[in-house]
Amino acid sequence: MSMLCATKIIQRETMVEPSIVDRVVLDADERHRRRIVMIGEGGTEFLLDLPEAVALRHGDGLVLEDGGVVLVAAKPEALVEITAVSPTELTRLAWHLGNRHTPVQVAVSSLRIRRDHVLEEMLQKLGAAVTPIEAPFDPESGAYGHADHADEPDRHAPSHVDDGHSHDHHHHAHER
Rank of each mutant, 00 (worst) to 15 (best):
L56S: 02
L56K: 02
L56Q: 02
L56E: 01
G59V: 09
G59D: 09
G59A: 09
G59M: 08
D60H: 07
D60V: 06
G61P: 11
G61A: 08
V63L: 15
G67N: 10
G68H: 10
V69Q: 00
V70G: 03
L71I: 02
V72T: 04
V72G: 04
A73Y: 09
A74R: 02
A74C: 08
P76E: 03
P76W: 00
P76L: 01
L79S: 04
L79A: 08
V80M: 05
E81P: 00
I82V: 15
I82A: 12
V85Y: 03
V85S: 13
S86Q: 08
T88F: 14
T88R: 15
E89C: 05
L90E: 02
T91C: 09
T91H: 14
R92C: 04
R92A: 14
R92N: 09
L93I: 12
L93Y: 03
A94P: 03
W95A: 10
H96Y: 14
L97H: 01
G98Y: 04
G98Q: 07
H101D: 15
T102N: 04
P103T: 06
P103N: 09
P103V: 04
Q105H: 05
V106D: 00
V106P: 00
V106Q: 01
V108T: 04
S109F: 11
S109R: 12
S110L: 07
S110H: 03
